[in-house]
Write a protein that binds this DNA or RNA. Structure first.
Length: 468
RNA sequence: GCUCCCUUCGUCUAGUGGCCUAGGACACUGGCCUCUCACGCCGGUAACAGGGGUUCGAGUCCCCUAGGGAGCGCCA
């Protein structure tokens, strides 16, 4: 069988974490089995669907690298097809017009709840023969009340539903437009979707969809319902748990592959392995190894994973992503200052996010206009003035600006002034970086460069002279 | 309320009847390394929801209870 999976978001907001994981698993499954991954936009709710949302979803998919083989298909462009199927159902007596008003239905539901039974449409319009004046009818699917429907699910196992639990769902609104349960069935059928991989909030809809498929004489696809992603406190993931939009993770300095890796491990595992390259995920992914239980989103672990990726990613790749963040901060590393790749290489071990990396490295590309108050107070004291002056002289005299020599100059200066390395390096660090935090002092001096080092040392010296 | 799903350290998970005095990872924590910040290395705390069965033997199979989640829309 040719594997065909799909991701079918409704464009009513951004691509969020849960959707991204659903997309990832569908994508992985298709890739793993040499199949196709289809993107379908479920925009039949015209009230809430927006093109901005469509673009946001597309943008998120692109950033994550979840490329689709077909689509995006838009349901709003397939209306004629849905009408055709609805008509077929009507013609075959598998669907009927319902003239119940909203008030009538509300009353019915209220009554059922009061009786402590499940609110369901009672099928009162099933045998109505004549239209009701002044009411545009909806169309309902005629569900078979007998027997049961078994969903054979790759993650949940076999799940049985009594058909009696299912009511006659609406497949076309009073304005004639089709509803979700109809469109999803028609599309999955027409697009030859072999595996429907989606959130388990759809598990309850599945028997209804299978019954429509059955009425249409079509074999259902294979289902896989993924458990939900919860917030850190175990409740439904929402904005108060932090970022839920995929693109926000980009803004916060995450690498797409780190997010993907994290999402993959949420609910899926391969023994004790924590880190998977995209290729490994494709090779090792096994949907039957997906957990049945919901998983809580843990920002700390994602942060750690991101750090791991920052540590080992190829430098050019990191530079590519870091450049975007420099741009966000109005810094243009190519306009002067050290080579961005050299900076990224030395900072990669001290950043958990690209935002940290860029912020920690901004001083390489910006003049020092003021020192971090605390750090200056602690390290830029009058007694280091002679040593700083001395170091400045030694550095200026160096024929080559090389790490080894720079290191030696610092060591020699410290020794000459009876200072321990810490007492020597920290003032220099504050002078060059503006704060008591930077890569090793020789690397810092090297990257800041001769001109800027001398200039910044001069600034520190005059700062100290003004103090005394 | 009804239907469906779920339940191993705080969190993500390994575990498919004996290899489990339950393993790994994050977080937390003690130490080492050290010119700062980090990285790294070594160590520690911490879980089978509860109760019944089945079995020589149960985290693993069955049942019940409890707790959590989802669905019950002219939303998807």
């Amino acid at each position: 069988m040719t594997v065909r999976t799909r991701f079918a978001p409704s464009p009513t907001g951004y691509l969020h974490i849960g959707g991204a994981r659903t997309a990832l698993f569908s994508w992985l499954y298709a890739r793993k089995h040499g199949g196709s991954f289809v993107l379908r936009i479920e925009d039949t709710d015209r009230e809430r669907s927006t093109t901005e949302s469509v673009n946001a979803i597309l943008e998120g998919m692109t950033w994550l690298g979840l490329e689709y083989d077909e689509g995006p298909f838009y349901q709003t462009e397939r209306m004629a097809r849905y009408q055709e199927v609805i008509q077929q159902l009507l013609d075959n007596d598998q669907a009927y017009y319902c003239y119940c008003s909203k008030e009538e239905l509300d009353a019915l539901r209220a009554e059922q709840r009061a009786k402590k039974i499940k609110p369901r449409y009672d099928g009162r319009c099933r045998h109505r023969t004549a239209p009701v004046d002044g009411i545009s009818p909806v169309i309902r699917f005629k569900n078979t009340p007998e027997g049961s429907t078994i969903v054979r699910d790759m993650v949940k196992g076999n799940v049985a539903f009594d058909n009696a639990e299912l009511d006659d769902l609406i497949i076309a609104r009073s304005d004639g437009t089709p509803t979700y349960n109809l469109t999803v069935v028609v599309d999955d059928m027409d697009m030859n979707i072999s595996h429907v991989i989606r959130g388990d909030d759809h598990l309850n809809n599945t028997p209804r969809q299978m019954n429509i498929l059955k009425a249409l004489g079509v074999e259902p696809p294979i289902y896989a319902h993924l458990p939900m992603i919860l917030g850190a406190d175990g409740s439904r993931l929402s904005k108060r748990h932090g970022a839920v939009s995929v693109m926000q993770y980009r803004e916060e300095g995450y690498l797409p592959e780190a997010l993907l890796n994290y999402l993959a491990r949420l609910g899926w595992s391969h023994g004790d392995q924590e880190i998977f390259s995209i290729e490994e995920m494709i090779e090792l992914f096994d949907i039957s190894a997906v957990n049945k239980a919901a998983a809580a989103f843990n920002p700390e672990k994602l942060l750690w994973l991101n750090q791991q990726y920052i540590k080992v990613s190829p430098a050019p790749h990191l530079v590519h992503h870091a450049s975007w963040h420099y741009g966000q901060r109005g810094i243009d590393p190519s306009a002067g200052g050290p080579d961005i790749q050299a900076v990224v290489e030395t900072q990669r071990d001290r950043a958990r996010t690209l935002v940290e990396l860029v912020d920690n490295s901004a001083f390489f590309y910006r003049e020092i206009d003021q020192y971090a108050e605390k750090d200056a107070k602690k390290h830029l004291k009058p007694e280091v003035l002679p040593a700083l002056k001395d170091l400045r002289g030694r550095l200026e005299a160096l024929p080559d600006w090389q790490k080894q020599a720079l290191h030696q100059a610092v060591v020699d200066t410290a020794e000459a002034h009876g200072l321990k390395m810490g007492k020597m390096a920290q003032p220099v660090r504050v002078a060059l970086a503006g704060r008591a935090m930077s890569p090793s002092i020789d690397t810092t001096i090297e990257l800041v460069g001769r001109e800027q080092t001398l200039k910044r040392l001069d600034r520190a010296i005059s700062y100290l002279q003004k103090q005394s």
